[in-house]
Design a protein around this nucleic acid. Structure first.
Lengths: 351, 351
DNA sequence: CTCGTGAAGTTTTACGTATAACGAAGAGGA
DNA sequence: TCCTCTTCGTTATACGTAAAACTTCACGAG
């Protein structure tokens, strides 16, 4: 009956249709298909033909070959998102926000989570294993930043110094404002002796936190100088640093932490030392991670709009790619008062 | 002096060198460059020439154009990793493991985190905005699974039914064994009245947990039937379900949870009801998330080798792409005894 | 001396798209 | 009538790589 047929049509593999297949079905040339499907047809193709092309594409289930498009245009429609670690769910949410915006514009996101161990294990660009149009990077991914700066790609920085000359744009949640809200909240509760559990991470965002805390406390009568301890961003180290704060001669009545993770360590330290939170010591976090409501008591913290940070970062990158200069975008934050803060214990004893 | 020079060489833009540029510098043809740089030159190019090509590539900083390669070969060297949500840091670690293995083989990973809200917001393939060679999917990403099955791509399932005919391979941590370890640990502490805080997620892995718990308890003399409550995988719902368990007439002395997140909810519920953990009730988790050591007391749990799961998944996918049939890969788990479990309180009262 | 064989290359082509360059046909003005 | 615009297309080409098909040469067997 039927011999081996090497020709197309009856062929074996139902391989993906190309723009030429669509052209054949619609009775036009491949060039016309390209024009119509990318919406560049106004004034160049009659509406009837355009509709016929779209119909043919729909019927065949045509999807443009991204590799061919990229080869032709030199644009990949792909952005690299660089974060310190995904295990911090703040960055998981940043990724989510960035991905959503990207998808709306036909962009993809590849993720580089900088290995926390020693040294930059891999080159961010190499490991992306994709050609890139631009980069969005958190200032906390310090390990990878150097490599990104001379990458020659448009760079959007998240939560970073707005005056960074390398960044084509910056997206910043209002960190200073958040720290001010926390401090005022604690001051209103009567606290005057503060400990600052700071992140030992070389990033602009943590410098801002420290400065904002000092500034908010400066003009307050009766406020004692802040005592600071540093810890890397994990619970055990936060616990150790908090213990140092709590065993000092004049124990603070409130510990302001640079991150919810450190606050979790502080709560643990307090409880292990037989101190109750918030009766004996108040603790505040920063970021409003999932962790904040898993603890008992729940953490009073500052909610950073993670998804919005990611979304705004991607939006900024897209406009940079479009030739604009979006500058700095500030995002509002919010105080979330919960169970880990209460009236100052030392109030009666203090004065 | 110098007029506008449109020709290449003196040209303005220092665009990326191509294999042709390398060929020119090494004094060979482009085809030879391709052969040498992909290590297909043995017996086709003399060692001296091969070395010259490599030197030229190095000097020019040549990097192959992935789009062109993909267009030519039809392979993208890109895999899609589908997970339910990255905010669960188990999957962040899976991603990390998968990415590491992928990078070793020049592969990239794009991530699809299924939106937790109602309905599958985006098509996984569409939103990947990349052509794919294969898919690795967690069985917990139920929303996205249907779309993946008829995608016609090689599929590796994580923590899923080994007999699934659609999956070209499966990678399974020893869930049943882990549940057995937990149960034996609690039995050794004298517990006989168990509550099971189960995940309300339609996934094979949770069926296995339930079955393993029943099986481990079945032959034990004096063990009462397990009482089960279900909750979606978040702390508040875990808290509610745990409260139902704890307010029942014959309160369990141990609550076995399907996940650390639920265990966090259980601890919170216990504390709010004035019960101490572990003195009044023991609680166990599953997975060993970062959360497990953030709580006080720390969670006794089963450590799932998240990075290994991701790495093995990628390894399996690579061998599927290489034409093999890797079948099912089992990974060992480990009991991590910590502070949330202790001797049964009802021991004296019970018998 | 001829022929086959293997090594060491080169030439050529195709992948699917975007876009510059090029018609053709009709309208309207001089 | 001829010439110039528009409108609506088509044709042809380039992007950078991989790989099949081809060339050239040297060497050894018959």
């Amino acid at each position: 009956m039927s011999r081996a047929e090497p020709d197309r049509g009856t062929g074996a593999v139902p391989s993906r249709p190309t723009s030429r297949d669509v052209a054949g079905r619609a009775g036009v040339s491949q060039a016309t298909v390209s024009l119509v499907l990318r919406d560049r047809w106004r004034g160049r193709v009659s509406p009837a033909r355009a509709e016929a092309v779209r119909a043919a594409a729909r019927e065949l289930g045509y999807r443009p070959n991204l590799a061919a498009r990229t080869l032709r245009t030199g644009r990949t429609r792909t952005a690299l998102l660089v974060v310190p670690a995904l295990t911090n769910d703040f960055f998981a949410r940043v990724h989510s926000g960035a991905t959503a915006v990207a998808a709306e514009h036909g962009f993809g996101v590849v993720l580089y989570a900088s290995p926390e161990g020693v040294g930059p294990a891999r080159d961010p660009f190499e490991s992306a294993s994709a050609t890139l149009d631009g980069v969005i990077a958190s200032s906390m991914a310090s390990k990878a930043l150097a490599a990104l700066r001379d990458g020659g790609l448009p760079l959007v920085m998240l939560d970073s110094d707005p005056d960074d000359p390398q960044a084509a744009a910056t997206v910043n949640p209002d960190i200073a404002g958040g720290m001010r809200l926390v401090t005022e909240h604690l001051l209103a509760l009567g606290h005057r002796r503060f400990g600052h559990l700071a992140a030992r991470v070389d990033s602009w965002t943590f410098e801002v936190r420290a400065r904002a805390l000092r500034d908010a406390l400066g003009p307050v009568p009766g406020a004692e100088p802040v005592r600071t301890e540093r810890a890397s961003l994990d619970v055990p180290d936060g616990l150790r640093a908090a213990r140092r704060l709590l065993t000092s001669d004049s124990r603070p009545t409130a510990i302001v932490c640079d991150d919810d993770i450190l606050a979790a360590g502080a709560c643990k330290a307090a409880r292990r030392m037989g101190l109750r939170v918030p009766e004996d010591v108040s603790v505040t976090g920063f970021a409003d991670l999932a962790l904040a409501t898993a603890l008992e008591p729940e953490l009073t913290t500052v909610r950073l709009p993670a998804e919005q940070v990611g979304a705004a970062g991607m939006t900024a990158l897209l406009s940079v790619l479009g030739g604009e200069r979006p500058g700095t975008r500030a995002l509002p934050v919010e105080l979330v008062p919960r169970g880990s803060t209460g009236p100052a214990a030392g109030r009666e004893a203090g004065s």
